[in-house]
Write a protein that binds this DNA or RNA. Sequence first.
DNA 1: GTTGATTTGTACCGATCAGTACAGAGGCAT
DNA 2: ATGCCTCTGTACTGATCGGTACAAATCAAC
Lengths: 189, 189
Amino acid sequence: MVRRFADRDEVITEIGELFREHGYPATSLSLITERTGLGKGSLYHLFPGGKPEMGEAVLTNIHKWFEDNVFLPLIDESDPQTAISHMFEAVTTYFRSGRRICLIGAMALDASRDPFAQRISDYFQRWLETLALALNRAGLLPDDARQLAREIVLGIQGALVLARAIDDDSVFIDEIGRLRKRSLTLPQR
Amino acid sequence: MVRRFADRDEVITEIGELFREHGYPATSLSLITERTGLGKGSLYHLFPGGKPEMGEAVLTNIHKWFEDNVFLPLIDESDPQTAISHMFEAVTTYFRSGRRICLIGAMALDASRDPFAQRISDYFQRWLETLALALNRAGLLPDDARQLAREIVLGIQGALVLARAIDDDSVFIDEIGRLRKRSLTLPQR
DNA sequence: GTTGATTTGTACCGATCAGTACAGAGGCAT
DNA sequence: ATGCCTCTGTACTGATCGGTACAAATCAAC
């Protein structure tokens, strides 16, 4: 008897890290039982829908983190520049300066995409929308705000890919710096 | 008897498309036999090292395509602006305006990365290096050339992730346009 | 035609997969 | 203590996995 009451959120977090390390398709139930210390019975009790439900739970958990720490502040913070600045800090921390991949972005690229297409799209659309709103409130015209929001979100994603591909954090750090500067030098409305 | 002489390059191309669709870890030998029309015996005859050798072959094939169509022109073309412009056209075609993922980038993000880390890194380093060289020849200081090369390569990668995540080609097209413009408006050396 | 080499396809192997069944263990109320 | 519910772990299932063995088919040279 290894564990008595599994903390669902903690299990979801652990599963999420496995998905980041191996990808969703290549993360087996054996890897999950090892990492979490839970037997199969426990896992199926917590996630009766099986592996797909684990995938949904992990994506929901990540989206919630971003909602609380990035998206809502982009909407609610009275000073949009402060909210945007905070977003860069939050993602630098969350993505561990480029050493931790964006699982949702990675899932867009492999066989996970089809089963989770809506969730993947919702997360990115939400990010683009809230960031564009903040940029607009900071002084950009709506079209320019949307374009810059795209540039920022894809820049973060690209920096994560490249940093990992060449094993060099500075790619991520430098790009965050560039995008931060980019968002501060806004044309006047 | 379905095929007599399998064309190795054609088989490599077909396998590469499967890897793009499913990811390397989730592409089974059954999928490969179906797609290529070759039996297992044939596949192991062509790739005695098995699936890892197929992975290597596909990565080598992609790197060669880029070497011939992007990297060497960036070095050899007498007019660097022409070579950079041609690179944007080549990648737009190769990545099908964002509808075809960069397999090497995707492999940086999943469990494929460890076995193929050197190849993945070499490809991106080569791209960065040749592009920086062309940008330098076009007038940028070496450090600025390296930074802009990074911005361009990660921008392309990020655009591929985002375009696929939200199922919108215009993300890729627009970013290529932005990067192209960015590379044309160089500070004078 | 025969022979040898090359290429191909299929049966087989042990291992692993996600999921199922269900007994065992623990906690709580009576 | 007992009974019920919740949570857990393990054995089992059929399917699929990558790889192996090897017979069959094809081709080229003589």
